[in-house]
């Protein structure tokens, strides 16, 4: 029958798109939660900060020999990759993945080592479309698939007994964004 044939295809599209979208949906969902809370944590990097103390130095341009002494006091024998002074009182040293901030007059040192979060960084990398190029097309296709999932889902509304409940759920899903637009927009 034409009607059952149409329903058959609708169900098939919905089912197959659903299967196809599982991986991307989990990726976007997990990363979405992670980056939504970027104010509370760093979703991409784990940054370990270690405080230390070295001999204070007078403010001014720091000579290379003094930089070597500072690093010696921190137990480091290598030379820094780069050095920068943002002002006469502060010295920033870069060594491998470490950034070492030295406040010269007090001798206070803060070292931080940033390492990529092995699970979250790649997820966020894709979610926020850092690769650009062809990933943009994949993301667009996925968005299209989600729209199709919604529409084919709508066409799968059950007949008779559970129809009212289903319509209420659809209406709630539409009203939630409208409600928040009314409050915040």
């Amino acid at each position: 029958m034409p009607s059952s044939n149409w329903r058959h295809w609708n169900l098939a599209v919905h089912r197959d798109l659903g299967f196809l979208s599982i991986g991307l949906t989990l990726l976007y969902a997990l990363s979405g939660i992670a980056v939504n809370h970027a104010a509370d944590w760093n979703p991409n990097y784990r940054i370990e900060r270690v405080a230390a103390q070295v001999q204070p130095l007078p403010p001014g341009v720091v000579a290379p020999a003094a930089i070597g002494q500072i690093l010696n006091q921190l137990g480091e024998t290598r030379s820094p990759d780069n050095v920068f002074q943002p002002d006469p009182e502060n010295l920033w040293l870069y060594l491998d993945k470490r950034m070492i901030r030295v406040h010269l007059p007090s001798g206070k040192v803060e070292q931080d080592v940033a390492t990529r979060r092995p699970f979250w960084y790649p997820l966020n990398f894709l979610h926020l479309n850092h690769p650009k190029n062809s990933w943009t097309w994949i993301a667009d296709l996925y968005a299209g698939a989600l729209a199709l999932l919604a529409l084919t889902g709508l066409l799968m509304l059950p007949q008779r007994s559970r129809q009212k409940r289903s319509l209420l759920l659809v209406a709630a899903g539409l009203l939630i964004p409208l409600l928040f637009l009314g409050i915040y927009y």
Partner: peptide
């Protein structure tokens, strides 16, 4: 989102 600068860039030319 337009450009994302990796943290590993610190200290690099």
């Amino acid at each position: 989102g337009e450009i994302v600068i990796p943290l590993e860039a610190r200290g690099k030319p």
